[in-house]
């Protein structure tokens, strides 16, 4: 039962993915919307605004630093969950 459901879900997913790919802009097009709307500012102004040449770092920790805070919290959560579930010690 769940097997059939699983296969149905895989098929559905696949159909959806194929449907959606049809009107993607060609791969690595420099003029695709993703490349021209938000990200240029990060590249062009990272040095004057944050002084960090590695744009990924500056976006990661500054422009979108809030996401990274939660990313770290996810790691924290995972660690804490595993401790809660597995660890069997009298004194830590």
């Amino acid at each position: 039962m769940s097997r059939i459901l699983g296969i149905m879900m895989v098929t559905f997913f696949g159909a959806l993915l194929i449907l959606s790919t049809v009107d993607f802009s060609p791969w690595s097009d420099p003029a695709q919307p993703a490349a021209v709307h938000v990200s240029p500012r990060y590249i062009e102004r990272t040095i004057e605004e944050t002084g960090i040449p590695n744009v990924v770092t500056s976006v990661l920790a500054d422009y979108r630093g809030y996401d990274t805070l939660f990313e770290t919290s996810v790691i924290f959560t995972a660690g804490v969950v595993v401790i809660l579930l597995l660890r069997r010690e009298k004194k830590w």
């Binding site: 605004e49 002084g51 960090i52």
Partner: peptide
């Protein structure tokens, strides 16, 4: 600007520790 630079360094330290 430099405060941002070192602020990023500080939070990255936090990430590293965790």
């Amino acid at each position: 600007v430099m405060a941002r630079y070192y602020g990023v360094a500080l939070v990255e330290l936090g990430v590293q520790i965790t």
